[in-house]
């Protein structure tokens, strides 16, 4: 079943057109990855889907419903959560308060239990729960941002470059977590520079260039695709 269907979206910053008609689909229960060079429009795509930017043209459907132009808080209610590029943790609030904010829209009784559970998944957060989130290291902040997003119980989790600026060991840990998130039933749309690792865990992939989709296909096929090997996997292939 299609969870997300994006058709021909065009997004502008003032007069600069960042997206020139992007179309993509995300199947339920899958990991779909978006690759592309710096400035290709990956973040703009994610922000448009999450409602932080409004597309001038095009349509975004979620579970068959037109959600184009809704606000981020309305989209979260429908089940779309974004972990933005650069993490965007609330640095003046404690780690625990950040997690509570992750469950902001929920009113059920399991919130506390769920916070306990994600802290088991990320033990470092439990250790640091009363500390201000701004004092965490980069990797810890990324864990917090992901944990926080999970707490909204999204149907679709948008992750924008979760491995950016992290040490290789932490990157591996983050990718493992993303796989676990998928296995727990949450669909993931993942933007990555780390093309090889992203394609290894993904089911499907899109490659963006200057605001357009230039290649798309099954992840295994993309791993073999000569254009991608050349442009993104060349140096890192091992």
């Amino acid at each position: 079943m299609k969870l997300l269907k994006v058709t021909g979206i065009e997004t502008f910053y003032d007069k600069i057109q960042a997206l020139k008609g992007i179309s993509l689909e995300v199947e339920q229960g899958k990991i779909v990855t978006i690759l592309g060079a710096n400035g290709a429009g990956k973040t703009t795509t994610m922000k448009t889907i999450a409602g932080l930017l409004k597309p001038k043209k095009g349509k975004i459907e979620f579970l068959g419903e037109d959600i184009t132009g809704l606000r981020p808080d309305q989209l979260l209610k429908k089940g779309i959560a974004l972990v933005p590029e650069g993490r965007a943790i609330l640095s003046s609030m404690t780690v625990y308060e950040n997690l509570e904010m992750g469950a902001y829209q929920r009113n059920d009784k399991e919130v506390e239990q769920d916070i306990e559970n994600v802290m088991k998944l990320f033990p470092i957060l439990k250790e640091r729960k009363t500390q201000l989130a701004g004092t965490l290291s980069g990797g810890q902040q990324q864990m917090l941002a992901i944990a926080r997003a999970i707490l909204s119980k999204p149907k679709l989790l948008l992750l924008d470059e979760p491995s950016m600026g992290l040490a290789p060991l932490i990157v591996t840990a983050i990718f493992k977590i993303i796989k676990e998130i998928k296995e727990s039933g949450t669909t993931v749309l993942l933007v990555e520079q780390n093309a090889k690792q992203a394609l290894k865990i993904a089911d499907y992939g899109y490659v963006l260039e200057t605001g357009k989709v230039i290649i798309s296909g099954n992840a295994e096929d993309l791993l073999e695709d000569s254009r991608i090997v050349e442009a993104y996997l060349g140096k890192k292939s091992s």
Binding site: A50, R71, D73, L76, L90, S92, M93, R148
Partner: peptide
């Protein structure tokens, strides 16, 4: 407080 720190972040958290 979340909105005061960062409006965009607060909004993606559902505020």
């Amino acid at each position: 407080r979340a909105t005061a720190e960062n409006l965009e972040t607060a909004s993606i958290l559902g505020v």
